[in-house]
C-alpha cells in the first residue's frame, strides 16, 4: 500500500489533482448513499478500506509475485493471507459496534 501525496491545490484541477478528486468524489458518493447524512467521519475509514483492498487485489491479479522467491515462503498479495481479511473484518465489526453504542447513547 502506497502513500499518496497532494502538492498544489488549484481551482481548476490539473491531471493528477483531477484523478485524486475523482477518487475522493467516488468514495464520498458511496459513503453518502450507503450511510446517510452522518457520513462525514466515516469517509477516511471507508476510503482506506476501498483503496487497500483495491490495490492489494489488483496487485495480486496483475503481477505474478511468485517469480520473486523468498527463503521463508511465497511472495503474494496481502489479501492472499487470511490474517489480512480477518483483521479488516474485525476492524469493521469494531467500528460497527462503536457506532451502535454511540447511537444508543
Amino acid at each position: 500500500s502506497a502513500i499518496l501525496i497532494i502538492q498544489n491545490l488549484q481551482t481548476i484541477p490539473a491531471f493528477g489533482q483531477n484523478f485524486f478528486e475523482y477518487v475522493l468524489e467516488f468514495i464520498r458518493d458511496v459513503s453518502k448513499t450507503q450511510i446517510g447524512e452522518e457520513y462525514g467521519p466515516w469517509v477516511p475509514f471507508i476510503g482506506t478500506l476501498f483503496l487497500f483492498i483495491f490495490v492489494s487485489n489488483w496487485s495480486g491479479a496483475l503481477l505474478p509475485w511468485k517469480i520473486i522467491q523468498l527463503p521463508h515462503g511465497e511472495l503474494a498479495a496481502p489479501t492472499n493471507d487470511i490474517n489480512t481479511t480477518v483483521a479488516l473484518a474485525l476492524l469493521t465489526s469494531i467500528a460497527y459496534f462503536i457506532n451502535m453504542e454511540l447511537h444508543k447513547l
Binding site: 499518496l4 501525496i5 491545490l9 485524486f20 469517509v43 482506506t48 483503496l51 487497500f52
Partner: peptide, 22 residues
C-alpha cells in the same frame, strides 16, 4: 500487525489526502 498498519494508513491518508482535498 495488519490491524495496526491499516489504522496507521487510514490516519495518514486522512491527514494527507481526504481532509485537505475534501
Amino acid at each position: 500487525i495488519i490491524m495496526v498498519e491499516f489504522l496507521l494508513l487510514m490516519v495518514a491518508l486522512d491527514k494527507i489526502w481526504f481532509t485537505p482535498l475534501g
